[in-house]
Design a protein around this nucleic acid. Structure first.
Lengths: 191, 191
DNA sequence: TACGTATGTTGGCAACGACAACATGCTTTA
DNA sequence: TAAAGCATGTTGTCGTTGCCAACATACGTA
């Protein structure tokens, strides 16, 4: 345990990411400011700039932190057998529903503006989905190679489904869709 | 034609929306400020607040303006026959690719925070998609009723596909998917 | 021990959203 | 027609934010 008010925080970078994950869902992505985070960390307003070149770099790091958490959930859901995709699809949707603002940040155009290699977990999570899809398809024993278009189709479906749900795009006055059933329908895609 | 520097602009609301549509793709959604728009319209910084209660109300109006444009494109693509959905799917993707920032705004969580009935064109465009889907399915002559889950499935697929494309989420170093073919695959959904 | 570097602080600037108080000009009606 | 009322635009201001420069502090290392 460190003394309370020392000049150097010690783990400010990790603390800022932790605080970001904590407040993004309550305050929304727009409600996150480096100044307010610095306040919460008990540190001056300019301190975050010692760890992140600008706000976009911080949000990029926060997004990748989100992908790290997603990878953990996907790993846990990666059961063997035919229900592999359904299980991962459900885990994927549960993650997004539990952390809607973070999920949006993770899939925002911000990511592709970041320097290559700055979001390793984002790449990892995509490869996990693609690999699971590949395994399911090669289970019958035909082609073990990855069909890019099929993977994108499945990804697009679950991604769109999740966004329509968490963004509240579906009209409130119409009968609500069966989200779980729709999420489980992902494997029937890309024939 | 009106005199140039008169006290009252006359069509400020429409002008602000027009300027917004014009600059959103070049400056990005984050780059839009009511102040800069007021400048471009040759009007003082507080003038926009006479027409929109706050920035969110303006962005909501801008989004609905986008849906109006989308409705026009969808209407044009609503050809009769079996390729109805493929045609509308292509039009949908072309719209989003041509106006990525606007498309993102139109499908942002902002919409569901707006008062009911403030985005009539958003509703219209969704109903157009659902109606087209219904027609295709009843073409064989079985059930004319709308299957909500099937409509959401098709919507989610094309929505996710478009977002993955315009947000640049697909890794640049992997072989690019065939977007057009994927978009045309929408009708095979939700069996 | 002294120096260099990483980390944190203070002060300040410009842009922005939003509000209040005021100015202007159209519209309606007495 | 004239005055009242309202819609619309202006000026001034405040608080917040991103970001930079100059400075302070502490840690590691030669």
């Amino acid at each position: 345990m460190k003394k309370n008010d020392q000049y150097h925080h010690g783990h400010l970078r990790e603390e800022l990411l932790r605080l970001g994950l904590e407040s993004i869902e309550t305050a929304g992505t727009e409600g996150i400011s480096l100044r307010s985070l610095a306040d919460k960390a008990g540190v001056s307003k300019a301190a975050p700039y010692r760890h992140f070149s600008d706000k976009e770099a911080y949000l990029g790091a926060l997004a990748d932190e989100g992908f790290r958490l997603l990878c953990i959930d996907l790993e846990r859901a990666d059961v063997a057998g035919t229900e592999r995709i359904a299980s991962m699809g459900a885990a994927y949707m549960e993650f997004a529903v539990a952390r809607p603002s973070l999920y949006r940040l993770m899939n925002s155009p911000l990511l592709c503006r970041l320097p290559d290699g700055s979001t390793p977990w984002a790449r990892k999570s995509l490869l996990m989905l693609a690999e699971a899809l590949r395994k399911v398809r090669s289970d019958p024993g035909t082609e073990p190679s990855l069909d890019v278009d099929a993977a994108v189709a499945a990804w697009a479906y679950i991604h769109g489904l999740v966004l329509i749900r968490i963004d509240g795009l579906f009209p409130r006055d119409l009968p609500a869709p069966d989200w779980a059933r729709l999420a489980a329908a992902a494997p029937s895609l890309g024939a």
